[in-house]
């Protein structure tokens, strides 16, 4: 059953694939972090698209709300998207802090050259 979200799904999948490619090929730790952000943001597009198309607000109805005939009411996807954005920010903050700490100890941030521990 086509729901109208398909174009956005393709866009999101493409972005996710680009992010994956970046994670695997980038040597610079900051580059990898950027690719990871791309992964999460790709998913956000997905969440918002689904929120618009498939969420009929069943959960709101459960909480005592009423469904307005056929109009998509639910916003839980958008709520999760907001959470993902804030978590991504927190993760980036911690990630960059660790990268700075790595730079202070090793004087470089090339992921491949960090091999004190057997990978």
């Amino acid at each position: 059953m086509p729901s109208g979200a398909e174009p956005y799904l393709f866009l999101s999948a493409a972005l996710f694939a680009i992010g994956l490619y970046g994670v695997f090929t980038r040597k610079n730790a900051v580059g990898v972090l950027m690719s990871l952000e791309l992964l999460l943001n790709a998913v956000n597009i997905n969440l918002v698209a689904f929120s618009r198309t498939v969420d009929r607000g069943v959960d709101l109805v459960r909480l005592g709300g009423t469904e307005v005939g056929g109009v998509a009411l639910g916003v839980s996807g958008q709520v999760l998207a907001i959470m993902v954005i804030s978590v991504a920010a927190a993760e980036a903050a911690v990630g960059l802090a660790i990268v700075i700490s790595i730079y202070r100890t090793f004087r470089h941030i090339t992921v491949d050259d960090l091999d004190l521990l057997r990978w």
């Binding site: 979200a5 992964l39 929120s51 996807g77 999760l80 978590v87 990630g95 660790i98 790595i102 960090l114």
Partner: peptide, 27 residues
């Protein structure tokens, strides 16, 4: 430091998959 970076990169990577899965379950 090295352990923390590896943990963060792979953890965030896993989070990407997890949220993608949640999004599709939502869909």
């Amino acid at each position: 430091n090295e352990a923390a970076l590896k943990y963060l990169l792979l953890g965030a990577f896993a989070t990407g998959f997890l949220v993608y899965g949640m999004a599709l379950l939502y869909g």
